[in-house]
Design a protein around this nucleic acid. Sequence first.
DNA 1: CTGCCGATGTCAGTTACTGACATCGTCTTG
DNA 2: CAAGACGATGTCAGTAACTGACATCGGCAG
Lengths: 207, 207
Amino acid sequence: MSRWAADARGRLEQAALALYAERGFDQTTAAEIAKRAGLTERTFFRHFADKREVLFGGAEALQELLVTAVAEAPAAAAPLDAVVAALHAAGAVLQERRESARQRQTVIVANAELRERELIKLASLATALAEALRQQGVREPAATLTAEAGIAVFRVAVERWTSQSGKRDLSRLINESLHELNVLTASGERSPAKAAARDNSARRGKT
Amino acid sequence: MSRWAADARGRLEQAALALYAERGFDQTTAAEIAKRAGLTERTFFRHFADKREVLFGGAEALQELLVTAVAEAPAAAAPLDAVVAALHAAGAVLQERRESARQRQTVIVANAELRERELIKLASLATALAEALRQQGVREPAATLTAEAGIAVFRVAVERWTSQSGKRDLSRLINESLHELNVLTASGERSPAKAAARDNSARRGKT
DNA sequence: CTGCCGATGTCAGTTACTGACATCGTCTTG
DNA sequence: CAAGACGATGTCAGTAACTGACATCGGCAG
């Protein structure tokens, strides 16, 4: 299975993250990344469509994780609960990669092109989540709205996780962000808007 | 005031849109755009930071328009109403540029890089709107939420306007999208989530 | 008229990215 | 075990996005 030095792709990802963090995205050439990984520039571009993509290699796996988690949620569960459960699963993965995940986020925030790429990845995640919800029988306006809200919660949580020294764990921050959303939508009196995503058969509270 | 052939920037924008529409974004070089505008490639890059930006020259003006509209809304108006009024003002501008606006949108949708750029521009608009709301005294979670919701409504409306033959005017589509949002958030029984953005002193309905 | 200034042109250079083809381990098949 | 087949990598040449340095041109102030 393994041929040359094994996991060329992974070495490229590591080298890129290190260099982007050291001297910045713009000041790093693809050739330098490849060299540090013991490969050539051409090979870099065989593994990644462009210089930015090397930071988003995990997006596909993350998307699959989220979709699977939603698919495995009991069909009777409220859509938002299914999404939140998926977010916690994804958060757990990031929590493992702690240091590199936080370093990655710092690099992205510091560069406009990388922020652009992240936005489109998040949009893609939301689309995939909405589709997964639809597969679960959630009807259309609710599916998209729930997915978007879920991604928004995740985004806010990761932002805080990254900015703070990462003392508090992601799972807690996800819950806090979710709680803020609840407070907001419940504002007026009762019957929170969250009901829009929850009016299926509310149950199951995996906080 | 006018020196050479007047409005070099505008000519570049027109030339770029025409070429992107004809042969696609990737198949168009900056040199070709400049040539069609009677200028050189170097001048193109003096006016626009990159090949994509030439399609977003109006973003700044649009943002200012939205912010101004929100700023001029009566302080007593509900935040969402102020934003909606701003969206209608912006919609009116697009409605004037009808053909080029729709052509532009078609070009953007057809290309991933351009979609990325549009996402970050919309995010920027939302940020600016939120700031404008804050200036009006809207408190924090509501300001951001209202701005994001407003941009979402606008995005949906423009998408429909572009995809359909553009028969129905943007203003109507904005109202329809807004109505859908209301229905969604009001789902349960009463006390719609929109109340979250509206619980100031509700009034003023510029449909 | 003269000198200043801003917009443009010219030129050379770097770097992201791509296509074509060669090479080199490894695995399969006879 | 030899002969390919095949996939991953290397090599090389080329296009095009962008950038910095410097020249030039047209109008405007004095």
